[in-house]
């Protein structure tokens, strides 16, 4: 029968495995970033301006005693660059939704969690790049780690682990945003969270009513962990607890954030 000959080609598509799916989506995310000059430039220039502003404009007025301000500042800058670069994930996901790409991906025979994981992994690579740029810039403006190389590497790794958790929050934000502009403006919420923390100044110098929040919120915890590792001594960072305390607390926060936002992202993705 002719019909059989015609339909013979239409077998059921097997669908990609979770690993292949995540790898394909991650590769596409990184490719898009690398091939979009405006993304590359805006993310790097934004971070650099911020860093230079604190280092040279405000920094002169900040005296901490124990260490030069630049050595206090750069670990905080590195920790927060993860959050700032990560906003790109929200914008990217919203854009994919707006342009119909999410629909295409969701209609394919692949595990949906793998689509999201691939997206987050691709954005993690971008975050790693942004963090490395911040570190390099930090060195250029006079930052020097006081701890061991191992501690510095641990600090970098910690940023990525925490960054991966935070990226799921941005993925959720992207999924609920109608378009890239909306995601961009909603992502701005991260700035007050960053400022009301120990990222750029010691929490003790903040107004009293801010301190209870500033003391324990994740940006402070991760900044303190990175700073303790970079300075090789939490006391130099003006911290009463040990480095291990801050590292473990950072991981606890990351686990908590992931525990909320990974299932939420999956639910949002399945929605409708």
């Amino acid at each position: 029968m002719i019909v059989d000959a015609g339909t013979a080609a239409h077998t059921q598509a097997p669908g990609a495995s979770a690993a292949v799916t995540a790898a394909q989506v991650a590769a596409r995310t990184v490719r898009k970033y690398m091939r979009s000059p405006q993304l590359l430039v805006s993310s790097m220039v934004g971070g650099a301006v911020f860093l230079l502003l604190f280092r040279f404009i405000f920094g002169g007025a900040i005296h901490l005693g124990a260490v030069p301000y630049v050595d206090f500042l750069i670990p905080g800058m590195v920790a927060t660059s993860v959050l700032i670069t990560g906003t790109g994930a929200a914008v990217g996901v919203a854009e994919d939704g707006d342009q119909g790409l999410l629909d295409r991906l969701r209609s394919l025979p692949v595990p949906r969690i793998a689509l999201l994981t691939g997206r987050a992994l691709g954005d993690l690579a971008i975050v790693a790049w942004g963090t490395a740029v911040t570190v390099a810039l930090g060195f250029a403006v006079g930052f020097r780690p006081h701890g061991s190389v191992a501690e510095a590497l641990l600090a970098f790794g910690l940023c990525l682990v925490c960054g991966f958790a935070f990226l799921w929050m941005y993925v959720c934000l992207g999924l609920v945003s109608a378009n890239a502009q909306a995601a961009q403006s909603t992502s701005m919420f991260i700035y007050p969270v960053i400022f009301v923390s120990s990222a750029y100044v010691p929490v003790g110098t903040l107004p009293g009513w801010m301190r209870p929040v500033a003391e324990y919120q994740p940006v402070t915890v991760v900044s303190n962990a990175v700073r303790s590792l970079a300075l090789g001594d939490p006391a130099l960072a003006g911290l009463a607890h040990t480095t291990g305390y801050w590292v473990v607390l950072s991981l606890v926060w990351s686990a908590g954030i992931a525990a909320v936002f990974v299932p939420l992202a999956v639910a949002l993705y399945r929605r409708s």
């Binding site: 059921q12 598509a13 119909g100 629909d103 025979p109």
Partner: peptide, 20 residues
């Protein structure tokens, strides 16, 4: 999942990646 194995969707938007 089984339905997704036999369908192909082309939506109202050209859902292709412009940078690729």
């Amino acid at each position: 999942g089984r339905v997704r194995q036999i369908i192909g969707l082309a939506g109202q938007y050209a859902a292709v990646e412009p940078t690729m």
